[in-house]
């Protein structure tokens, strides 16, 4: 009984793991930059939970937002979709904000607004470790 009950749990764990793999490398300390061809810098340091706890961010939509007809959707969020789905590698007619710019505006922009968090290259794209 016990083992049968564990199967769906194990499957969903594996699925989750695979999904997680596609968004982040195994150590969650850095963002996954697989979509960038020949990235110029190391991926940004980012520990999702620690960051949000420290920054006091509860609202997923701050980052994982969904824009519909030019408006921020009130109910929908996009944790289940890779950013690149909307923010292409280069600006397009549908979305003028390319992926790299989206990341920079999102992270650095917020850090500047709150006067907290890294604002210079090395703060996130650390060459160490």
């Amino acid at each position: 009984m016990m083992s049968k009950a564990l199967i769906p749990l194990a499957v969903s764990a594996i699925v989750f793991f695979c999904l997680a793999m596609s968004f982040a490398q195994e150590d969650h300390a850095r963002l996954d930059n697989y979509v960038f061809e020949k990235p110029a810098m190391p991926p940004a340091l980012f520990d999702h939970d620690a960051h949000n706890e420290k920054a006091g961010i509860d609202d997923c939509a701050i980052c994982h937002h969904v824009i519909e007809n030019g408006k921020l959707s009130e109910f929908e969020t996009s944790e289940d979709r890779p950013c690149v789905e909307c923010h292409g590698l280069s600006p397009s007619a549908e979305n003028a904000i390319a992926l790299r710019r989206a990341y920079h505006l999102r992270c650095k922009g917020c850090h500047l607004d709150r006067e907290s968090g890294p604002i210079m290259c090395g703060g996130c794209h650390s060459r160490g470790v």
Partner: peptide, 18 residues
Amino acid sequence: LTAHVVLWEEAWNISWSC
């Protein structure tokens, strides 16, 4: 320089090769 191009990109949404 990449770092400069990124700044142009952030501020003006223009970009070129690095």
